[in-house]
Design a protein around this nucleic acid. Structure first.
Lengths: 345, 345
DNA sequence: TTGTATGCGTTATCAT
DNA sequence: ATGATAACGCATACAA
């Protein structure tokens, strides 16, 4: 295929001129430019991006490193990033490390020279990798366990979401509220659990370890949790599943056991996945706007990438809004809109 | 940051040796190699991928160009591609052209030099762009309207899916089956409609234009279709929505109108989106395995990318399997597995 | 086994 | 306004 040299030769100019034409430099006569364009078109010349990157040290690409490319959450994050990035003409290079933290370093390295900045959603143990990346590229962290003062971050207000949910349940009269937790190593799971305990204390209730049922964020663990729950005496009147997947399993198990969810027992979730509103009863949960998170992250990263001087890292916290539907026993019609969403308490 | 030259100098060797060490060449003494590794580590040297790409003409990256990054379908395609690609150590560079075919050329060009091959799901009108890309890179087409003999492709058996669905409905005794179509320009929509007509004819029934209600694949168009449907006299006993989104709208509108879906009227969809099994009644539909499509496409692309000589384009057709649940009025328990899936007829 | 030198396809700095 | 030429950071053919 034709290179810039071929075009230059065929147009009877130097490669410098061709380069200028393709970069819309003003320092070139209209006639020359037109001739070059025509020749380039005839030769079907496409500039090589790798070569451009090498000289300019810019790629107009944002790297995205996620645990996985699976599921609504990550998919929406990607879409949010892409949405914001393309407005500035940036592309995205995505990669998942698939639960293998060892791959984080490897992938980050392979992105060097191919991206102008990197957005990462990685476990704590990869913090040293983050530091290394940070030395060469702007980095934005997604949901880090704690704010890293050297890079910007976007975090989800898990704690606030839990607080709002428990406050709502307490407000409905519940005094014995169980929780189904997520994986111990998971930041979100951890924060949601802490928010739950905190909310109980704030309401004058005492967190009780027997009310904390272990789950792993997967549907089946919610299913299993139902059994443990029903064995408790006295039986809790409400269960807060720390994610919707588990709430789904919980509801089907409880329903199968003859428990009327919403009436006999309140069940709530966290995430507001698509199916939440299609469940029967429709699931009361906490809405997480992954799209907005991705967009916010891209916003931060782009300003760093496009700025000449160092920018102060900033930390944005995404709100987690309570969405009242039926599974908590509330009358869903009291909510403000058709989807039953209301502001967190 | 350190370059290969810095490492060479600090280790007291030439850059060629450093390069050999990083490429695991056997032509280097163990001691030299160890010294280079140590020095490289001390200097925190990371090779620049753009420079590597430029010299080797390889990127170990697959480009993915989709209409959008939104929704389950594309998300699953991406995951399928990624799943297969990373097995061979490839990354993926994804981009959406967001319903702007003009951007297809632009994006494809920007990928040159950054990917070893390109997977595209583009409209017919971009066929000339495909040809241009094809001259420089291996290309795999996703769901092209017709097989392009110059590049490999992965297509969905829309026609077969429709046939299976209509056969099933006919088998249940329905003789007046309406359809809600998709956007006219959409390949899938088109093929699903043709399959419907064909199946009717094969069953000795006559396609009737008044039974073909226009939709646009969005939930609301299914909602609106209900009105048209109920106005028909005689009223069809079954409706085949050409995608699940519209089926969702259809079911809620019909239910609101007092029609018992599954009993008074059979409603079926196409795609088998996640919520299909959570609907009440659970949706009978045609399962589309987007993950498998992505994986199959990546498989084809990788063989082309990694092969020395030209490979013959191959065309794979992904099956679309009938999933019998409740909305068609069938007893879902007759299906073979818990999810109610059965082979297409 | 290691080093030298050239090239990959651009952009950018000088000249002219 | 245009051209020569030196980078950019690496891989590799060839020499030693």
């Amino acid at each position: 295929m034709a290179t810039i040299r071929d075009v230059a030769k065929a147009a009877g100019v130097s490669i410098a001129t061709v380069s200028r034409v393709f970069n819309n430099s003003a320092l070139v006569t209209r006639e020359t430019a037109e001739r070059v364009w025509r020749v380039a078109n005839d030769l079907d010349y496409w500039p090589n991006s790798a070569a451009m990157s090498l000289t300019t040290n810019r790629t107009r690409t944002l790297g995205v490193l996620l645990p996985d490319l699976y599921g609504e959450f990550f998919s929406e994050i990607i879409r949010g990033i892409d949405d914001r990035a393309r407005r500035d003409g940036y592309q995205i290079l995505v990669s998942g490390f698939h639960d293998d933290p060892g791959r984080v370093l490897e992938i980050a390295r392979s992105m060097l020279g191919r991206v102008d900045g990197l957005m990462m959603l990685v476990p704590d143990e990869s913090i040293d990798v983050v530091a290394k990346v940070r030395r060469r590229l702007p980095v934005v962290l997604l949901n880090p366990r704690e704010e890293q003062n050297h890079c910007s971050s976007v975090r989800l207000d898990n704690r606030g979401g839990s607080l709002g949910m428990i406050q709502h349940l307490v407000g409905m009269g519940h005094r014995d509220i169980a929780i189904v937790t997520g994986p111990q190593t998971n930041v979100d799971a951890d924060e949601r659990l802490l928010g739950y305990r905190e909310a109980l204390l704030a309401a004058g209730l005492k967190p009780d370890p027997t009310r904390e049922i272990a789950g792993d964020f997967r549907e089946f663990s919610g299913f299993k949790a139902a059994e443990e729950l029903l064995a408790l005496a006295p039986r809790p009147t409400a269960v807060f599943a720390t994610n919707d997947n588990m709430a789904v399993g919980l509801i089907s198990a409880l329903t199968a056991a003859g428990v009327q969810v919403g009436e006999d027992m309140a069940v709530t979730g966290f995430d507001d996945i698509t199916i939440a509103r299609y469940l029967r009863p429709a699931l009361t949960t906490v809405h997480v706007d992954a799209f907005a998170m991705g967009r916010a992250g891209a916003e931060l990263l782009l300003t760093e990438v496009q700025s000449e001087e160092e920018v102060e890292p900033s930390h944005v916290v995404m709100p987690a809004e309570l969405v009242i539907r039926e599974s908590c026993g509330a009358d869903a019609s009291q909510a403000q809109d058709g989807q039953g969403r209301s502001a967190a308490g």
